[in-house]
Design a protein around this nucleic acid. Structure first.
Length: 582
DNA sequence: GCCGTTTTCGGCCCGACTGTTTTCAGTCG
């Protein structure tokens, strides 16, 4: 049985069409149209087939009559003649060459047509043999950059996880503040500020009158391994930890337009500039240029959006995924603030694979201002080391009670819930019997094994767990590990509908390499009425801070505090658990 | 190829930096 094409698959078809057309030198606006269509499809939160069934394909911005027809052909036949034709004209290997830094469609096309280079391997051989230099316009610097680019690609460049990238960015900012005390404003921007789960590099912004002094100080930081580029207002470096960092410096009165510009996303900025054009302005990081060339500068981001008649749009929403329309209609979501979390409902202790005692986890949670937590050690099941059976859980209950008694005696308003992270077995049963689960305050159920079951099987398995009246929360629902494995092949629409129907909470797991559910799923789950939890899955007290990443993910998914149970008072959460039938 | 608060035609996002260029194209973000 062939699997139905996902939105992502179809988006890729259009994006590849755009790339190939660009290499062939097609009209650049036609290329742009295919690229926009591909990006629009990738951002959709419902299957394309649903749009077509409703006759709504052409309502998607960027999709008109022609591309809507092509989507129909792809949905019906699984392929597109145009794509096949282009694939014959531009081999996959030439497309691969676009991934080499500093090699774009124009030069890749010349390499293919003038030297017959049709793959990364061909390119490597051409560099080694010195043949590249024979081409007009390719000097020794180009050759060296391409050689380095090929080496980087061969290492398999992975995107950096949000958590460590934030730590590095904050370190760089602290260093810069130390050497440049007079610089009024410094911030990280880019995908880091938007809270993407992984980032390609670190983007920093500074405001200063003497811009060159700041770029010089930046490239002289001890963390810098190599300077990739340096101008009056911009610099780009490679750090010793392998991350790339870019800095832009602007005059203080242009801070707002520059912060907006450098935060992106690219798609958000393109949309914003189009809106500016409609009002007769040209917008850049300098500000709004009037037709006569005069400039309206913006010292704050609020001024940028206000000039377009819009309220400020939070960075996490800036993906051109409906935020402009929502802002114009006064319907931007009231995003969950980071300080709204009162609880953390998924963490481990030394009773299973954690590295601290329950009392230590509790103390760390109190120090973070939390009002209640759930200790959810693993159940005994295949592969999970040191999991708890019924007898051990019973013993653990006494320790939880003792920790609660201690905080109670100290007059603290704090409570440890006794929970478990129970395994969902390969057939969708739970690894502990119902009568044991009934003795606990909170049950998190998670998939850990057989994540590669076929779609129907693993979906049915998860649906069975969602329907179990003892299950309060589904932990890390898809099981993805960033940079390592995709999530299970689940029918997420069915998962969300079932969770909404049964009142089962879905987790945003805040582990830096999980962030599962991801933002797109969060948004769709909310649309279908699902309630969420943001949990650390901490195995050590220091890991409780991870929920910061979960909050960013929730905000990227347009979540308000109301829809996240960790913002609720304990009584409300327990009442909900009761209602489900525990 | 898409699209409309000057439009169904004629536009389509903008600037910095780099290299191989004697004035700018390509690439990137």
């Amino acid at each position: 049985m062939t699997r139905a094409l996902s939105n992502r698959d179809i988006a890729d078809i259009f994006l590849e069409i755009a790339d190939r057309m660009e290499i062939l030198g097609e009209d650049r606006f036609r290329v742009l149209a295919y690229r926009r269509a591909g990006e629009a499809i990738a951002d959709l939160r419902m299957p394309l087939a649903d749009y077509r069934a409703r006759g709504a394909l052409e309502e998607i911005p960027g999709i008109g009559k022609t591309i809507a027809e092509k989507i129909g052909v792809i949905l019906d036949t699984g392929a597109l003649p145009l794509a096949e034709r282009l694939r014959a004209e531009v081999p996959d290997g030439v497309l691969d060459m676009l991934r080499v830094p500093d090699l774009g469609p124009t030069r890749a096309s010349r390499l293919y047509r003038e030297l017959g280079i049709a793959s990364l391997e061909d390119l490597r051989l051409a560099v080694e043999s010195g043949r590249l230099r024979t081409l007009k316009g390719f000097g020794p610097k180009s050759e060296e950059r391409i050689r380095q680019g090929l080496a980087t690609l061969a290492e398999g460049q992975q995107r950096t996880l949000l958590g460590p990238a934030l730590a590095t960015a904050e370190l760089l900012l602290a260093e810069l503040r130390a050497v440049l005390p007079a610089v009024p404003r410094l911030a990280y921007t880019g995908s880091l500020r938007r809270g993407r789960p992984t980032v390609g590099d670190i983007d920093l912004l500074a405001a200063a009158e003497d811009t060159a002094a700041v770029t010089r100080a930046f490239t002289a930081l001890p963390q810098v391994a190599r300077i990739l580029g340096q101008g009056e207002v911009k610099a780009s470096v490679l750090l010793h930890n392998g991350l790339r960092a870019d800095l832009l410096v602007v005059a203080p009165e242009r801070w707002g337009s520059a912060l907006q510009h450098f935060t992106g996303s690219k798609e958000h900025n393109i949309h914003l500039r189009r809106l500016a054009q409609e009002r007769g302005y040209s917008f850049s990081e300098q500000g709004f240029a009037r037709p006569d060339g005069s400039l309206i500068t913006c010292a704050s981001e609020e001024e940028v959006y206000a000039t377009l008649g819009l309220p400020w749009i939070p960075p996490e929403l800036r993906e051109d995924a409906g935020e402009f329309e929502a802002a114009a209609a006064g319907r931007l979501p009231d995003l969950i603030p980071p300080e709204a979390l009162l609880a953390d409902l998924h963490m481990h202790s030394r009773w299973s694979d954690g590295r601290a005692a329950i009392a230590e986890m509790a103390a760390a949670a109190v120090a973070r201002g939390l009002r209640y937590i759930a200790i959810t050690d693993h159940s005994a099941y295949l592969g999970v080391t040191g999991g708890l059976d019924a007898a051990r859980l019973h013993e653990q209950a006494a320790e939880v009670a003792a920790v609660n008694a201690e905080w109670n005696a100290r007059g603290a308003s704090f409570r440890v819930l006794h929970g478990v992270e129970v395994d969902i077995t390969t057939d969708g049963a739970l690894a502990l019997p119902d009568e044991v689960l009934a003795t606990l305050d909170l049950v998190v159920a998670s998939l850990h094994v057989s994540l590669r079951q076929p779609r129907e099987q693993i979906t049915a398995r998860l649906l069975r767990a969602i329907a179990n009246p003892h299950v309060d929360i589904i932990g890390h629902p898809t099981g993805r590990i960033l940079n390592r494995r995709p999530g299970a092949d689940l029918d997420m629409e069915a998962v969300f509908r079932a969770a909404a129907e049964h009142g089962t909470i879905l987790e945003i797991n805040s582990g830096p390499d999980r962030l599962d559910l991801d933002a797109a799923y969060v948004r769709r789950a909310l649309e279908l009425g699902v309630v969420l939890a943001i949990n650390s899955d901490a195995h050590h007290p220091d890991e409780l801070v991870w929920t910061r990443l979960g909050v960013l993910t929730a905000r990227r998914g347009w979540a308000s505090a109301e829809r996240v149970v960790n913002t609720w008072p304990l009584e409300r959460l327990l009442e909900r658990a009761q209602r489900k039938g525990r």
